[in-house]
Design a protein around this nucleic acid. Structure first.
Length: 192
DNA sequence: CCCTGATTCGC
DNA sequence: GCGAATCAGG
């Protein structure tokens, strides 16, 4: 695979969205996260607007030799209705963001309005005790993304237990997340 | 150990 | 230009 214009576009977008290099690599396919990172650097968009930056290192920090106190004529420039209708002549037919449906996993259904077997619920309680209590940033492809608690409070985290291949949740949560929807559809006429 | 991005350097 | 190997950090 090579860095076609299109692929670079996707890379730019995803990187801007804060996706990790590995995720982008998977999405693009045919490249490793190293390749992605390498490309990102070559494109000059290494550091994003701050995010999950683990290594917040200002390495090689430019000493900023700017002893010249420039008057900085940076007044509140009146944005005149932003007369900038995109300096794009007619060479970027990509106005409507492509339907790149990244962000994979479906949102976890709330187990409230759903009738789950007491067994499963009890099991969940157990599982939640073992939850790794990961925050959003710590989730990966193979950690259970089942939310626990109220997102509006501090009492919120993700299960984080190792999840089955392909599934976004651990075994227990997968069980309640993907129910065959036939829990109590009992047909009383068993032997007929 | 899992992950993250950063950098280097041979190709 | 590319990206694997390596590095450095959480």
């Amino acid at each position: 695979m090579s860095w076609t214009d299109e692929r670079v576009e996707i890379l730019k977008q995803m990187w801007a969205e804060g996706k990790s290099a590995s995720v982008i690599a998977k999405e693009l396919g045919g490249v490793t996260r190293n390749a992605v990172i390498g490309k990102v650097h070559r494109l000059g968009l290494s550091n994003r607007t701050a995010a999950a930056s683990s290594t917040a290192k200002p390495a090689a920090e430019a000493p900023k030799p700017e002893p010249s106190p420039q008057p900085e004529p940076k007044k509140a420039e009146p944005v005149q209705a932003a007369p900038k209708p995109e300096p794009k002549p007619a060479n970027s037919p990509v106005p409507p963001r492509k339907p790149i449906i990244t962000a994979g996993q479906p949102l976890p259904p709330q187990p409230s309005a759903n009738e789950i077997s007491a067994e499963a619920l009890a099991n969940l309680a157990e599982v939640e005790k073992k939850a790794r209590k990961l925050n959003l940033m710590q989730l990966t492809e193979r950690t259970c993304k089942w939310p626990i608690g109220d997102p509006a409070t501090e009492e919120f985290w993700f299960c984080g237990l190792p999840c089955q291949a392909g599934k976004p949740y651990c075994e227990a949560h997968t069980a309640v997340a993907f129910q065959p929807m036939s829990s109590r559809r009992d047909r009383r006429s068993a032997s007929r």
